[in-house]
Design a protein around this nucleic acid. Sequence first.
DNA 1: GCCTGAAATGCAAGTTTGTTTCGTGGAAAG
DNA 2: CTTTCCACGAAACAAACTTGCATTTCAGGC
Lengths: 159, 159
Amino acid sequence: MAKTRPEIALDSFDLAILKILQKDNATPQRTIGEAVNLSAPAVQRRIKRMEEAGVIAANCAIVDPARVGQPITIFVEVEVISETAELIDAAKAEFSAAPEVQQCYYVTGEADFILVIVVATMADYEALTRRLFFGNNNVKRFRTFVAMDRVKVGLTVPL
Amino acid sequence: MAKTRPEIALDSFDLAILKILQKDNATPQRTIGEAVNLSAPAVQRRIKRMEEAGVIAANCAIVDPARVGQPITIFVEVEVISETAELIDAAKAEFSAAPEVQQCYYVTGEADFILVIVVATMADYEALTRRLFFGNNNVKRFRTFVAMDRVKVGLTVPL
DNA sequence: GCCTGAAATGCAAGTTTGTTTCGTGGAAAG
DNA sequence: CTTTCCACGAAACAAACTTGCATTTCAGGC
């Protein structure tokens, strides 16, 4: 499943570089170099190393959902009936496959899954619940939270 | 606060470009051009336009938290006592200010806020709860969900 | 204390990519 | 039918990335 990635040690240079790339990965290497006191090639080699090691999982553009006609963000807590490994894996696969599901976590606590969903209209969400939850025999119950304000959104890791 | 951004219309070219950039914004413009049947300069102009319009909110590297010593992801549902505008804004500001708080949403439903938190250890989380929740008079109660598996994580918007 | 080797660095050259310029063509308005 | 306005593509240009190489640094062994 997940690729076997070598464990690598990160020094303070790497962390400083990551910190910059997390905010803006279009920053020229030369600029990064000046900020961390390293030459551009050194920065480039470190970035490549971290990408290969999986420290940098992806480089992507963050799209504002509201600007592309998907203004509704919804959280869902899902509780399942049976927690056998097969059924859990099946649920993971099904939730992951839905493009509207932006994030899916398998969690401990009063729920089993937490989903973050992005849709254009509540009707779309309703249709999705039929497909994902009512159409799934293993879903015991789910609770919906509609986001009124995306106060802080990102995948930034504290460094 | 948020900049006044012009509303812009997106055609199928723009959407196709966004779809690619959401997966990998290091894709050369020439390559994108071939994929969508447009020249590199045309792609470049469209990207710039979407960045200025806020459709593309950011370009950033996604860091794997586990690889940088922050293996624990936690969801928290926070319920507040008083929902006056001032107190809500104060809570938003306080939650946003914490670097461990990756995401913060103000929601309807049985909770008022949902937070996504990334920490290195449970002790760190415990310390954070003292600071953010027990140290805040307006927090009535909070519920914690610890992620066992980050099944699907991203900010990809369905297009 | 000195030597050695692995690893990382900086510089400079070469290559790819991003950016600007400019002339053209097509669609909407007059 | 003509004009205007955009957006486009081709090519020239500038900037950034990438590679090769000699040098430095540092840890471990002699």
